[in-house]
Every structure is written in C-alpha cells, then in structure tokens.
Write a protein that binds this DNA or RNA. Sequence first.
DNA 1: CGAGCGGTTGAGGCATGTCAAGAGTTGTGG
DNA 2: CCACAACTCTTGACATGCCTCAACCGCTCG
Lengths: 244, 244
Amino acid sequence: MRPEDLPEIRHLHLFRDMAQANFESLMASSYAQIFPQGLEMIRQGDPADFLHIVLEGSVELFAQWSGRECTMAVLRPVSTFILAACIRDAPYLMSARTLERTRIILVPASDLRAMFRHDTEFAVSVINELAACYRSVVRNAKTLKLRNSRERVASYLLRQSLLAGGVASYILPVEKRLLASYLGMTPENLSRTLRLLEADGIKMDGARVIITDREKLTVLAQPDRLIDGSDEIAGQTGSGLPDR
Amino acid sequence: MRPEDLPEIRHLHLFRDMAQANFESLMASSYAQIFPQGLEMIRQGDPADFLHIVLEGSVELFAQWSGRECTMAVLRPVSTFILAACIRDAPYLMSARTLERTRIILVPASDLRAMFRHDTEFAVSVINELAACYRSVVRNAKTLKLRNSRERVASYLLRQSLLAGGVASYILPVEKRLLASYLGMTPENLSRTLRLLEADGIKMDGARVIITDREKLTVLAQPDRLIDGSDEIAGQTGSGLPDR
DNA sequence: CGAGCGGTTGAGGCATGTCAAGAGTTGTGG
DNA sequence: CCACAACTCTTGACATGCCTCAACCGCTCG
C-alpha cells in the first residue's frame, strides 16, 4: 500500500472516527492490489474474507441466477463494499468485477470483526455505515416495485443532474447497457425509453444527457426524498449507481 | 409493560448479549402499546423516534409513491423493525400498519443510540442485526430483478414449505392480496399464476398449499441459498414475508 | 339479510422482453 | 496505419408477460 493512500481511506466515514493506533493496526494487515479491466474479483457464494476499498477505477456489483445476470451497483473511489458479508462471516450475495483497471485495498474480515469489538468509535461507524447501506437498498427496492421503467429512467436522469449540482447537461457515468441492467430493463428498452423521453424534457446525444425542460421531467419523475434521497453521508461516493 | 414480556425481548439476538443492567435501563424508558387492527402506526417520512418490537399480532411494512402502494414485509412476534431509521435519526422509508390487534414495545431511539456507545456487546449485536437486515433486502432485490413472477411465486411457496420443516402442505401465512403485493404483482395475476402452477407440482385449496410434486416445483423454482437463504440468525422471525 | 371485502375469472390492452439486423465505435494485431 | 473483430447502441418486427377493468362468487360481519 502506498503511504499517500492512508489519508484517503482515513477520510471515509467508516474509518474517520476510530483511534489512530487502531486505524494503523488495521491498515498494517491490509494490502493493495491492482486488477485489470473486466476481472471478476469476487464470485457470489464465495466466503467473505476481505473488506474491499476502491481507491482508483470502478467496480460493478452484480448478481446471477439461473443463467441471468443483473447489475446491482457501480462503485467508484473512495468507497467500501461487501461490508455486511464480512461482518456476518457469510458468503457474498453478489459478484464483483472491475469496469476498468482498478486499485483495491483488502482488509482482512477477521481483523475487521476483532476491531469493532475493541474500538467503540469504530463500532459506531460500522453501525452508521450499515444502516445507510440498508436504507439505500430499501430505496432501490421501492423504486423497482413502485415505478415503471419510464419513471425509473426519468428519476435516474433527474437525480444525476441534481447530484452534479443541478446542471442542465452531463455525461452518463456508466454505459447504457449497464444502466439498463441497474434499472431493471433491457438495453433495447432503455434505448427506446430514452427516445420517448424527448417528449418529457430529455434529449440524448450519445452518452450526453441534456435536460431541455426540467419542469416537465420533474412532473414525470416525481422525485421523492424517501426514494431518491441519499441519507447525506452516503454522498461520499461519486458513483452513478449507489447502494453497496 | 408486563414483566413477562422482558424474557421474550431479552431473547432476541439484538438484546441477548448486552449487560443486564443496560438492558433493564433500556426497558425502563420503553413502554408497551396496543394497536387495533388496520391502524397505520408509522407513516413513511415521519422522524424515527422509536424502535418497535412486535410482541403479539402482526405488522405490515409498506411503501407508497405517487398514489401506488406495495408491501415490503410482514413482521410477526418476536421481532424488531425500523432499526436503521432510528440509528440514522432519519425519516422512516416505509410505513407500518397492524394486520390484527397488535402489541408493540416502543424503545426511544435516542436511548438506543446512547446505549450502543456505552455497551460494546450491544453495539456488536446491532452490527450483526443490521448486516443481516441488509443482506435480507439484497436477496429481495435479487429475486425481483432476476426472477419473473411465476418463478417468484414458486420459490416463495417452496421456501415456506422448507421453513415449516419440508411439509407437503401448509396454510399461507398471509392473505393472497398481500402476498401478491410483496411478490411485486397484482392479486389477479397471483391468482392466475397459482392456477397455472398446478402444472408444476402445486395445488391450492383456499389458503392451503399442497405440494403435489416437489421435484417438479424445485426444477422451476431453482432455490438458491444466495436468494432464498436466510443467514440463519434471521430465522428468529416466524414471518411469512421477511426482511426488516 | 345486505354490505363489504377477498378471491377468481375473462377480455382486452399496454409494457416489456426477444430476436434480428445494421450503424457506429473501440481496440488489436498485422 | 489499416483491416478486422468485438462490442455498444439503435431500430424494427414480433411475442408475451403483466396489468386494467369488469363481473361474479363466497365469506364474514355488522
């Protein structure tokens, strides 16, 4: 691990409040690893041995069943993932692959579990992190069950604009095929939906999104803080597709 | 609160390992309440003031958006709910209503938050509980995205049979209209699907499920421990529709 | 006994997935 | 530097899954 990585990791809510000595001890048993693009670094069902921290690059979390596959999240620096599996010492529920060349810090799960018994501030941080993750997935489940695909796309596009500071135009942070899978639809259907949304205040130009009528889009998307909100803290990931 | 309630609560994983004095202190500031059937005790968006514990009866967690509504979970004794909102001191993401006359213990969220800073064993319990809840919702999201409605129904029916000890016949633990919403479909569609499943090893008789050909049903449902499993511990809820 | 509700069934329609083909882009190796 | 392969994205045609609306049955409960 590079010395310059430590401040970045330390800055994460998860590690921000623990004692310095404990942080150093945890990092001492961790190590960095660089994965090439497209590598499946975690396979669902495998035992969870390490907490992962993305320092550079990006990672897709996805799930498989019966030959089908869907994207569950995309993670960007600096963020952690599969915390829950490490804590429960249970098999991963999702697989992970790199979307580009990616640098990861691996923190041994056993050290992690020992540490929150030892450092109360760290335990509190873990609690807060898990609670935020839980709420994030609940929001995700709500959007899947309560909105149809057109509404999901509209909310997503609007939300991204707001995350970028309310800009009228921005580049999609992920490939459309991945976005489609994240939103629970096929690439073909996303493509068609994006075209149809031109009647609702959206114009696409390749990967660029142009909001031509924010009011109209808002009427369709009906953004709701209980679905599209982000519990503040989680804003530390600049990812396009949250919920770890 | 009745004195005989305490052992039941104490038996929950969440409260099992904390110091006796701390448990008593937490319970001292809590109180019991009885709600009639059909009462909306929690409205999504309201601030989370109390951790809820179901002692008798049953509770539906549901979500609303834009005039639509869906069931997220049904809870039965003895189990807790909306822990995450309490911890984050954030608004509820889901509403809750009683399905029958129900007795609830209310634990002040502020006391809860103070307690896990004070009692490490309790903090560890909270961590484990949250991690289990997180994984439960992830499983739920997976089944929604990876399986079609017929497969979701088949998995559900098979899973309930296994939870009941592999019995060939059992009574549905919830109304069909509720089950439909939980599984992300309309009541009409569930009704039709149940009929069609007679070709796949299921026979319905009112609310009774009869598995006529377990092998055939299993082929269709393709049960998967990474979706249909339950992280062991969570088995403490006898509910038909888990994930808090 | 009648109202209300859950459940079922049918008809019809919309939303979404599937299959296929082609344009554009990217990356690679000769 | 070019040619080719592989891949994403788009579009069209078609199939089907699922929802909506409506009617009806049976049960429960006032």
